[in-house]
């Protein structure tokens, strides 16, 4: 089951490699980060010490949030004062 999770990560890595925008790549990173918690629990069953590995999974479930928040904050909160006057050109969707 864990191996199939790792195999299913390959399409997401494909999206991270080919992704047209940076946001696609960051989205893929977010998905992989969530799945890491599951794979850690599965590794715990292989070692028969799930009580120990569950702590790692809690750490991942709590701290994965930080990465997505910092990226979103980078993109939408702060602009340099010199560039505030000129409006950005609206981009069209890439088809």
């Amino acid at each position: 089951m864990g191996a199939s999770l790792l195999v299913l990560m390959i399409p997401i890595l494909y999206r991270i490699i080919m992704g047209p925008t940076g946001f696609d790549r960051i989205l893929g990173v977010n998905v992989i980060g969530t799945k890491t918690a599951v794979i850690l629990v599965i590794i715990g069953t292989l070692f028969d010490r799930v009580d120990m590995f569950v702590d790692f999974a809690i750490a991942y479930a709590l701290l994965n949030f930080v990465g997505a928040i910092v990226v979103s904050r980078y993109f939408n909160r702060t602009v340099p004062l010199q560039e505030m006057e000129k409006p950005k050109p609206r981009r069209r969707a890439k088809v």
């Binding site: 809690i58 701290l63 004062l81």
Partner: peptide, 27 residues
């Protein structure tokens, strides 16, 4: 370069952080 911060804190994100920060600290 002087930065200007134009934002209002996002409602959903701040409420989630309100819930999750005590848990992180206890953990």
């Amino acid at each position: 370069r002087e930065f200007v911060v134009d934002f209002e804190p996002d409602l959903i994100v701040t409420n989630t952080v309100r819930l999750i920060v005590p848990v992180i600290q206890i953990f």
